[in-house]
Amino acid sequence: MDMDKLQRDIPDLRSKALAELSSLEDRRTLDAWRVEYLGKKSEIAQWMKMLGNLSPDDRRMAGQQIHALRQTLESAFTERMREMDELEIERKLREETLDITLPGTPQAIGHLHPITRILMEIEDIFVKMGFAVVEGPEVETDAYNFEMLNVPKDHPARDMQDTFYLSEELLLRTHTSPMQVRVMEQMRPNIPVKVIVPGRVYRRDEDDATHSHAFHQVEGLVVDQNIRMSDLKGTLEEFAKALFGPEQAVRLRPSFFPFTEPSAEVDVRCIHCKGQGCRVCKQTGWIEILGAGMVHPNVLAAAGYSPDAYSGFAFGMGPERIAMLKYGISDIRLLYQNDLRFLRQFSQLR
């Protein structure tokens, strides 16, 4: 072994190997490179075998040089491998790039009918306030729908609710109020009575933008000793705040229902203009949402609760009207048209 030749060959090999390495692009050629320059049959390996032929001084020096060369190539190889891996990952990622503007996998989205949504909201509020939810028959008797509610036959108050009769004595309930009497009869003599009654009601009205021959009501009834009209106001105020927001207030106006005395129409602050006055509230700042009053003594008596010992309040509201106000629906018939292009808009939950 010629020390002088070795002194030339080592740098030559280094530059050749490194130059070759930097030109390699895939794992296969890279492996071949490793075998060629660092394998058992590589020049470096052969040099190492022949080191013994050199003088001790030369051997030490050449050993160090060859070892350094090997380390240089090995680390260059590792580095090159790492670069290659990175390139590989990059390429793969590039290939896998998606059009992220494409839609996500659709989930099955159904929609509750807006009336149901409002009914559920109303119910939840009253259930939290301790009310029980009960249901009653849609086909009622004249007695429960009118007479026991202090509306005798041939009374002009019957004009307030045009009625679909099924026979002389049977009719489609014109309001959920008959359940006031039914619930009291069932619960008698227990107190407190504290229920709401959601359900469908029917009036013989021509359908137009604000009238429907069929619609929904939620009746409320509280009976106990010493129930006051102020309790009615407070309860409805809590309800209005829960449904329309904490800044809400209610206003009671005198009115007439045969089955309550005193009777009131109940307004909330216009939810469109927050009470400033707008087209929706006819510039008054208030919007009527329900009728209410103290249960008429004749009704208490008809249901078997002595008006001298008990008092109560009742109210009735229309979820359609509330839905129309809340969602900006101008025609009640849209709620019964069931156009899926309309119903599918009700997907937002808050």
Binding site: E123, F126, V127, K128, M129, G130, F131, A132, V133, P192, K194, V222, D224, N226, I227, R228, M229, S230, D231, K233, G234, T235, E237, E238, V250, R251, L252, R253, P254, E261, P262, S263, A264, M294, H296, P297
Partner: peptide, 30 residues
């Protein structure tokens, strides 16, 4: 009751305060 309404009506329903019924607490149910 009719006279009570006359009083409330002429004094104004706004004069009626807002209170909550003083009832035994019972959870609502469905």
């Amino acid at each position: 009751a009719d006279l009570v309404e006359e009083v409330a009506r002429l004094c104004g329903y706004d004069a009626i305060p807002a209170t909550l019924p003083m009832l035994a607490n019972a959870p609502g149910r469905v």
